[in-house]
């Protein structure tokens, strides 16, 4: 549709105005992370930039171990979810039965269970099993938490693969495992990758289970940042530096997976 110059100007003003306002807190955080602790408490644009805050975060807190926990837990949870979801999504997309529809919707409904509703039993089970404050505990929770989304996304990707390609493979004698491994996976690698990416983002930013089930040993970055909430830990520059490092990788991932995000988060209800 052709827009009049006035419409274009208004769109430009409102679009960029909204974008800058929404991005401002993030930009301000990055800016503050390069200030000294003294400059950080006076909201000004002019200061002598320094890397002190970053240096101190590394020196004082065991930043790397929290970051490592985040990586291990997010990747672990995502890989585990994919291992369960790939065969399930494959079977439901290519060999649907009468129960497939119901199964898919039921899986989705498990996602609706509010985590706080099951906090008590999960906490007690974890305590009994010695899983509190362990990475493997969170890996399990995150895999289960994302499994419905991962199955759904893979299912929609697999649905788009033409059946004839698999037929041809079968003519050449490919068995089910070979079919998945040599035909389907390469064909849908972009789909699997973006599904994994979304799962990574969700795991990385998860802050209910990570705050309630970890203390020091397995705490990921979400919990590390939460430790800055105590009044004596109120150092704006260090908070900003730690936060900037915590969100940077996932922000970049997010920028690349906007499309898949819509699909994954709405279970295909919005296209």
């Amino acid at each position: 549709m052709r827009a009049t110059p006035l419409q274009r100007l208004l769109s430009f003003i409102f679009g960029w105005g909204a974008a800058l306002l929404l991005f401002f807190p993030i930009a301000w955080m990055v800016l503050t992370s390069f200030k000294s602790e003294r400059d950080a408490t006076s909201p000004g644009l002019f200061f002598a930039p320094s890397l002190d805050a970053y240096r101190e975060v590394f020196a004082r807190a065991d930043y790397l171990s929290f970051a490592l926990n985040s990586v291990v837990i997010s990747v672990g949870g995502t890989v585990l979810a994919l291992l369960f979801a790939i065969p399930a999504a494959y079977a439901m997309a290519f060999h649907p039965t009468r129960r497939t529809r119901g199964t898919l919707l039921w899986m989705l409904s498990t996602k609706m269970l509010p985590p706080v509703g099951v906090l008590v039993p999960i906490y007690l089970l974890f305590r009994t099993a010695g899983l509190l404050d362990t990475r493997s505990g969170l890996v399990m929770i995150y895999a289960l938490m994302n499994l419905p989304i991962v199955v759904w996304m893979l299912f929609t990707f697999y649905k788009e693969v033409p059946k004839e390609i698999l037929e041809a493979g079968r003519m050449d004698g490919a068995k089910t495992a070979g079919e998945v491994w040599f035909l389907l996976l390469p064909l849908t690698l972009p789909g699997v990758a973006s599904t994994g990416l979304l799962s990574l983002i969700l795991c990385w930013n998860e802050a209910f289970w990570s705050l309630n089930l970890t203390s020091a040993g397995a705490a990921p970055l979400t919990a590390f940042i939460a430790s800055f909430s105590s009044p004596e830990g109120l150092f704006f520059a260090k908070l900003s530096a730690a936060s900037t490092m915590a969100i940077a990788p996932i922000l970049v991932f997010g920028w690349f997976s906007q499309r898949q995000l819509v699909q994954g988060l709405t279970f295909g209800a919005v296209k």
């Binding site: 430009f12 929404l22 940042i225 920028w255």
Partner: peptide
Amino acid sequence: QPFPGRNIARVLAISPFFVMPTVSALI
């Protein structure tokens, strides 16, 4: 609507969604 720099503006506008809740809250 089309306007100059729309894609960059959109990326900036959706960024807050990727910030972990503890960071958003404390910032």
